[in-house]
C-alpha cells in the first residue's frame, strides 16, 4: 500500500498522453507559426522567406499603400454594420419564432439554411442577384419601372454594402438559432411576472430578457467577430476585390501579397498588423470578462 501521495504528474496518464498531439500542434503550428511570421515580417522576403533584415520598412510601405488603407476601411465598415445588423436581425427573427408559431422547425431550417452554404456559393448567388443585367434591377425594370437602378456591386462607393447584404443573408440564421436557444432558456414565469407588472413586451425584452441572455450574446459575439476578421472567400467569389480596389479586405491583401505579388515580407507585415489589431481588442475584453471571475459566483 502506498502511503505517500502519488506524483501529480502521473495521474490521469491516458488522458495526458491523448492530449499530447494537440498540445504539440498548438505549440508548433499556432504559437510557432505566429512567431515565425512576425520575425519574417522584418525581412524583405520575396518569393521565398529569407532572413535579410530591413527593420520596419515593410510596415512603412504597408501603411503607405492605398489598397491596404481601403482594405482596413472596408473591414471597419463591414464589421460595424455586420455586427449591429446581424444581431438586430437575428434577435428579431428569434423573437418572432419564439411566439409559438406553427411550422417552427420548417421556418427555422429555412432561415438557417444559408449558413450551410459555403461563402463561395453565397458570393456567387448574390453576385447574380445584384447583377444589373439579370438580377433585381432587370426584374424591376421588366415590371415597367424603367429608371430603377440597383447595382451596388458596380458602384465603387457602395460595393462593400453589396457584400454586406450577402454576409447578412448567410450569417443571420446562425445568430437567430443561438438567440432562440437563449430565449428558450428564459424561465416562462419571468414573462408572466412582467405581464402582471404591466411591462410592455418590448420593454421586457430590452430590460429583462436581453440582460439575462448575456452568456448567449458573448458566444454569438465571438463567432460573429471571428467571421468578420477572416472575411475573404465571400469577397473573392462575389467581387474579387473590385470594382478597382473598392472591396479589398485585409485577409485578401495578405493572400495577394504572399501568393500573387511574391512579396512574402509585405504579406507577413499585413498579417502581423491584423494579429495586433485583434489582440488589442480581445485582450482588454478578455481581462474584463474573465479576469474578475474569481470574485463572482
Amino acid at each position: 500500500m502506498a502511503t505517500e501521495r502519488p506524483n501529480q504528474l502521473f495521474r490521469n496518464k491516458s488522458s495526458k498522453i491523448a492530449a499530447i498531439p494537440m498540445i504539440v500542434t498548438a505549440l508548433f503550428v499556432f504559437v510557432g507559426g505566429t512567431i515565425w511570421t512576425v520575425v519574417y515580417s522584418f525581412t524583405k522576403s520575396g518569393l521565398l522567406p529569407r532572413l535579410n533584415w530591413v527593420g520596419l520598412d515593410q510596415y512603412e510601405r504597408l501603411w503607405a499603400t492605398r489598397k491596404w488603407l481601403v482594405a482596413i476601411e472596408n473591414l471597419v465598415i463591414y464589421g460595424i454594420c455586420m455586427l449591429v445588423l446581424v444581431f438586430v436581425i437575428g434577435f428579431i427573427l428569434a423573437a418572432l419564432i419564439d411566439q409559438k408559431i406553427r411550422f417552427e422547425n420548417t421556418v427555422r431550417t429555412i432561415i438557417l439554411y444559408p449558413y450551410a452554404l459555403s461563402f463561395v456559393v453565397t458570393g456567387l448567388v448574390w453576385q447574380w442577384i445584384l447583377n444589373p443585367e439579370f438580377g433585381v434591377e432587370s426584374i424591376v425594370r421588366a415590371w415597367g419601372w424603367e429608371s430603377f437602378s440597383f447595382d451596388p456591386l458596380y458602384n465603387a462607393d457602395i460595393a462593400i454594402y453589396g457584400v454586406l447584404i450577402a454576409g447578412l443573408w448567410q450569417g443571420s440564421g446562425l445568430v437567430m438559432v443561438l438567440m432562440l436557444a437563449g430565449l428558450r432558456g428564459i424561465d416562462q414565469e419571468v414573462w408572466k411576472a412582467a405581464r402582471v407588472d404591466g411591462i410592455p413586451t418590448w420593454k421586457t425584452y430590452i430590460f429583462i430578457v436581453i440582460p439575462m441572455m448575456r452568456p448567449v450574446f458573448i458566444t454569438t459575439l465571438v463567432l460573429v467577430v471571428t467571421g468578420i476578421v477572416k472575411l475573404y472567400d465571400l469577397i473573392v467569389a462575389q467581387t474579387g476585390g473590385g470594382p478597382g480596389i473598392s472591396t479589398e479586405v485585409p485577409a485578401k491583401y495578405v493572400y495577394d501579397m504572399m501568393f500573387q505579388a511574391n512579396n512574402l515580407g509585405q504579406g507577413f507585415a499585413a498579417s502581423t498588423m491584423m494579429l495586433v489589431t485583434v489582440a488589442l481588442i480581445v485582450i482588454p475584453w478578455a481581462i474584463l470578462e474573465f479576469g474578475g471571475s474569481k470574485n463572482r459566483g
Binding site: D187, E189, V190, K192, A193, R195, D197, G198, I199
Partner: peptide, 15 residues
C-alpha cells in the same frame, strides 16, 4: 390584461 385586473402574483421560481 393581467396588469389591469387588480392582482399581484407570486411564482414558484420567484421570477
Amino acid at each position: 390584461e393581467p396588469s389591469e385586473r387588480g392582482i399581484g402574483m407570486v411564482f414558484q421560481s420567484y421570477a
